[in-house]
Every structure is written in C-alpha cells, then in structure tokens.
C-alpha cells in the first residue's frame, strides 16, 4: 500500500451550470473545496442540512458526477474517468430509497448478481449462484428469497438487498447515502447493527451520509459537518458531538430533538434564524456568517480555513 489512507479527497469541487438567462449560466457551487481522508475500516460520518452538498460529495467520489476540480485518491492512486470502472470494484454505494434503487423487473438473484456479471467475478454458473447465496446469508436474507422480486419485500429487507448488491464485488469502501433514513426506527436499528457487523467481519470503510445526528454519532469514528458546500468542522465523533467548536455545529446539535424528556427539557436550543442561503448566490467570506451569532466584518471578507483546535477537531471559524 502506497498510502496509509484508503480514500483521500483533496479540494473536491463540484459545480453545476444553471441557466439563469438566455445566454447566461451561473455555476451552482454544490461542493466547494472539500478535503478529508478515510482510513481502512473506518467510518466517517458526513452531516449537514439538505442542500449542503453531502450527497454530491458521495457521488463525486464515485464519479457518478465528473468533478469540476480537486482530486480523489484510492490507496494513493488518483481516480480518473478512465480507470473508474476498475475502481468501482473497490468502491460501492448504498442509496437512500430502498423502493426506487432496485429494479422492479429483476429478481433478487439478478440484482445481487449484476455487479458480479459486470466485473466478471465468477467462472461458472454454479459459482455465481453460490456467491449470491453467500451474500444473501451475510445480510440476513433467506435463500428462498432469491427468485422473488423487489416489491415482495419490506423496506428493511430491500435495504438489505441493496447492501448485498454493494458487497458483491467485495469492496473496501462503501458510500452509504442516507442508507437508514427511510426506515422505521425498529428496522433502522437492525440495519445499523448489520453495517457494524459487516465492518467488523469484512473490514470495509464507510462514508456514512445522514441527517440524523444521533445515528451518525452512534456509527461513526469521525464526523465531518458540512455547510453550503464546505466542511466547517471535522473531528473525532465524541468530540464533535460533545464539544462542538464551530457555531454552526453548536446550533445544529442543539436543534436535535432528544428522546429523553429530562435531558430535553434541560437543554438550551440555539435556534438559528432564517434559512440557508442559496448556493447560487453565496455570501462572501464565511458562508455561515448570515446566520451566525458571532459574525464580524472579518467573516464577510475572508473565508476561514480548517485549523486544528485543542480537542483535535479541525474547525473553519475565526472566532471559536
């Protein structure tokens, strides 16, 4: 291995051109200079409000979009459009909606078998079938389910099919894009436990994208917090959760409804005023300054970069 990191993301930029006039297009800066790295077998949680670019980061890493700038390295090797096919054997994705991410006209066997077909990972029909049944067992599905169609399953079971499909190529890195958000709490816990078991068994690393902060804190080793296309804070999960440094992280965490009446009544909410600004028309300097309690003149002029704090977290703020 040429690098201690499995995945290195450096200054990733993803702009989408939006038509704003007859001849004019304005770039929508969905991701604007995001850097982080993930070690083998680690879980990095990525949180933020809708529209902050967290899903786009996940998709750009896997080249579902062609990034505007920056680099993504897998085991020290730069990923480009031409070698992506090869890299998809090591990097896979689990999607949010277990209803629309499975082809309704394919049986479970074919859904899970498709990555095997694409990457030609078997030598005989027999081997293909054995591999598929092995994967189904791994995610807790019965062998008799193999000939059924996706609509015959509940949400939790469908998400298991999606996970089995991602695991088919034996990846080392999986992007979980809101993989448990659409599930009921009792089923969500089953799937979260499964993610943890699989990590222990197979040593996969996750980029766990979610908006439920309690779930992210539970599953992640480290957490990155995004606001309007930039990472504002990244650090150890417990530090970010218990000792948030960036004013945005602080207010985000204080807004989380806590399932415990005594703690909930004691906690003080820092309610943010206003809405997230449009990424088409970002504020100058620090993007959060329009909603920040501590904003000063400096915040409007310069964009703060990530710097390390006492607790080991990296924070992009001039004041905290």
């Amino acid at each position: 291995m040429s690098s201690e990191y499995l995945v290195e993301v450096k200054d990733l930029k993803q702009y989408f051109p939006i038509k704003t006039g007859f001849f004019k297009t304005t770039p929508l800066k969905a991701v604007d200079g995001v850097s982080f790295d993930i070690k083998p077998g680690e879980t990095l949680g990525l949180v933020g409000e809708s529209g902050c670019g967290k899903t786009t980061v996940g998709r750009s890493i896997l080249r579902l979009y062609e990034p505007t700038g920056g680099s993504v390295k897998y085991m020290g090797e730069e990923i480009t459009a031409s070698n992506m096919q090869e890299h998809r054997k090591h990097m896979q994705m689990v999607f949010q909606d277990p209803y629309s991410s499975l082809n309704p006209r394919m049986t479970v066997e074919d859904i899970i078998g498709e990555p095997l077909d694409v990457h030609k990972l078997y030598s005989s029909k027999q081997e293909r079938r054995e591999k598929i049944l092995g994967l189904m067992e791994l995610v807790g599905l019965n062998a008799e389910h193999a000939t059924r169609y996706a609509h015959e399953f509940s949400g939790g079971q469908r998400q298991r099919i999606g996970i089995a499909r991602a695991l088919a190529v034996d990846p080392k890195f999986i992007v979980c894009d809101e993989a448990v958000s659409a599930l009921d709490v009792s089923i969500q816990a089953q799937v979260i436990n499964m993610f943890e078991d699989l990590q222990e068994k197979l040593g996969v690393a996750y980029l766990f994208i979610a908006h439920d902060l309690l779930v992210v804190k539970h599953i992640s080793n480290r957490i990155a917090v995004m606001y309007l296309g930039r990472v504002v804070e990244i650090g150890e999960a417990d530090e970010v959760y218990n000792n948030p440094q960036h004013p945005y992280t602080q207010s985000l965490l204080s807004a989380v409804p806590i399932p415990d009446p005594i703690i909930a009544k004691k906690s003080q909410r820092i309610v943010l005023t206003g809405d997230v600004p449009s990424p088409m028309n970002m504020p100058s300097g620090c993007a959060f300054r329009t909603r920040c309690r501590f904003a000063t003149e400096q915040c409007a002029q310069e964009c703060p970069s990530l710097t390390e704090r006492k607790n080991g977290s990296q924070v992009a703020c001039f004041h905290q």
Binding site: S186, A189, N193, E196, L214, Y241
Partner: peptide, 18 residues
C-alpha cells in the same frame, strides 16, 4: 432501538421481525 445522546458505542437492540 434508538441511539441515545449519552450512550457510547454499545450496540443498539432492535425489535426483531417486521
């Protein structure tokens, strides 16, 4: 089955079945 704010990394206890 829900992660709690004051809990550590202990496993969640899901409700079995569907």
């Amino acid at each position: 089955s829900i992660p709690r704010p004051d809990s550590g990394k202990e496993r969640l206890v899901p409700i079995a079945g569907t």
